[in-house]
Each structure stands twice: as C-alpha cells, then as structure tokens.
Simulated scan of single mutants.
Amino acid sequence: MTDQSSPVIDERTREYYETAFYGLMAYRELTAFERLSSDARFSPTLADREALARLAVTEFGHYEAVRERLLARGADPEAAMEPFVASIDALHARTRPADWHESLMKAYVIDAVSGDFYRAIAHALDAEARLLVAEVQSMEEQTGWIRGRLRAALADDPRLASRLALWGRRLLGEALTQARLIGDEHDFWGNLLQHGSEEERRKAISELFAKLVENHSRRMSALGLTA
C-alpha cells in the first residue's frame, strides 16, 4: 500500500466505519455458514460431509462473535447487515457451483479474497477491531482442508484442472467486482488513505486490488492451477 500507517480519522467517522464494517463482516459470515451447510449435503463421503459441516459451524461462531460486537456498540445487527444483503446475495446467485468441486473452489477463492479485502480496509480501525478481524478471518484450518481436498481431487482426475482454473478466474472477477462496489458505496477507501490527493487515493486502491490478485495467484499455484 502507499501508506502502511493507519490514517487518522475522527471519532464519528471511525464509528461509522466500524459499524458498517462489522455489518459487512457479519453478513458475510452468516452467508458462509449457510453456503457451507448446504454444500455439505453433496459431499462424496461422510468424512467430507462432517469436515464441511465443522467448517460451517466455525463460520457461524464467527458470525456470533461479530454480532456480539455490534450489540456491545449499541448497534442493531440486522440494521448493520441490511445494506450488504443485496450485494452479497447477488454475488452468490451469480456464482452457484455446478458440483462438489466447484463448491470447494468457491469457498477457497471467495472467502480468501474477502478476507484479504477486510484486513486491508480494517487497518485504520482500533486495535480491538483489528483483533476481531484477525480472529474471524483466520482461515488456516478451513483453507488447508479445502486445499488438500482439491489437490486430491485434481490428482485423481487431472481433467478437472482446466475447468476449475476457469471457474477460479470467474470467482476472482466476481469477488473483485463486489469489493469495488462495496468500497465505493460505503466509502471504505477512506480507511486506506484518509489524507492525500485523489491521485494518491486511486493509487492506493489500485495497489490493494493488485495485492488481492497476487494473493489469489499464489493460492491457485498451491493447487497446481494457473490463475
């Protein structure tokens, strides 16, 4: 990023950012729980079904943690989530997986890109908020299991590679489009660079998206796929 230090923002602006940010994160965690719970039904084995169900439970725990933070701030969780419902629901409607493997790839790509985006726009919030983001977006267990399962599937059927690589690219495009839309609509870019020229602001946003793509490429390479 252009400015790695936390920008200075006034208390009222910080309060707006934090409530909106928690609302965004809460709804994303809730829909992640719903999606993983639904996908678990199509698992090829009972072991896979159990593992995906456990990941869904973890996501719901994350949702509850963010919801509790909103309540502690005196905010209505439903009201905080509402502005993000249409955008996130539309993303999931556009990216319905065709099968088990596509559902795993969706979780692998969408959740990771979202996590990177949240960490970037949260860096101007207070330490407590950043800690919650780190806890909620700590997806090492989830990502590791999904990565291992996808690797095994690709090893068993190399013909999956081209289809999943193409699906991964589509998912990345959708995730980046949503991040741009949400950032614009709710002015989360103020968390990236509160002070500075418009040119510096645009540069900071461009660097963020370049980093999102770079991280995605690294994750795809870990699967042996081309981003």
Rank of each mutant, 00 (worst) to 15 (best):
A175C: 13
D111A: 12
H62N: 15
L166S: 14
Y108K: 06
R130C: 05
Q142D: 03
A98S: 13
G168W: 05
A86V: 04
P97K: 11
L150K: 08
D111L: 07
R170H: 13
S37V: 01
I146Q: 01
R170V: 11
I121P: 05
L125N: 03
H123G: 00
S114D: 07
H101S: 05
E59D: 05
L55G: 06
I110L: 11
Y118P: 00
D157L: 05
V113N: 06
R130I: 05
F42A: 08
A127C: 01
E82S: 12
T143V: 08
D76V: 05
L160P: 03
A86W: 07
A51Q: 12
A72S: 12
R73E: 04
Q142T: 13
R169N: 10
L46W: 13
E59R: 14
M105W: 09
A124Q: 04
R73H: 12
G168E: 01
V113A: 07
H123C: 00
D48N: 11
R147P: 01
L131N: 05
L171D: 01
L166M: 06
A86L: 06
L55V: 03
A152L: 07
T177R: 15
Q137H: 07
R49S: 10
A155T: 11
I121C: 07
H62S: 11
R147S: 08
A127G: 02
E82F: 09
D89K: 14
A122F: 09
R96Q: 11
L52Y: 06
S87I: 04
E128K: 14
L150M: 09
R163Q: 10
G115D: 03
S162C: 00
H101Y: 13
E64V: 14
A80V: 02
E140P: 03
V66Q: 05
E78G: 04
A120F: 14
A90D: 09
R54Q: 11
A107R: 05
A72C: 02
L52H: 01
A90T: 07
R170P: 00
A80K: 08
L91Y: 15
D76F: 12
L131R: 15
W100K: 02
A47I: 03
V57K: 09
T95M: 03
S114R: 07
L171K: 13
G115E: 00
G61N: 08
L150I: 05
L52M: 14
S114W: 15
W145G: 02
E128F: 13
L132G: 07
V133W: 14
S87H: 11
T95N: 12
A79S: 11
A65V: 01
D116I: 02
F60S: 05
L176Q: 07
H123S: 12
E68I: 00
D48G: 10
W145I: 02
A120T: 10
A155L: 09
R69G: 02
E102V: 08
V85C: 05
R151D: 01
A129T: 15
G173K: 09
D76W: 12
E140A: 15
P77S: 04
S138W: 14
W100T: 04
A86K: 10
E59V: 00
D89N: 04
V136G: 08
T58V: 09
G144Y: 14
A80L: 06
A127Q: 09
L164E: 00
L36K: 04
F42M: 01
Q142K: 14
H123Q: 07
A107T: 15
L154N: 07
G148N: 09
P83R: 10
P158S: 07
Q178T: 13
L70R: 06
L71S: 03
E68M: 08
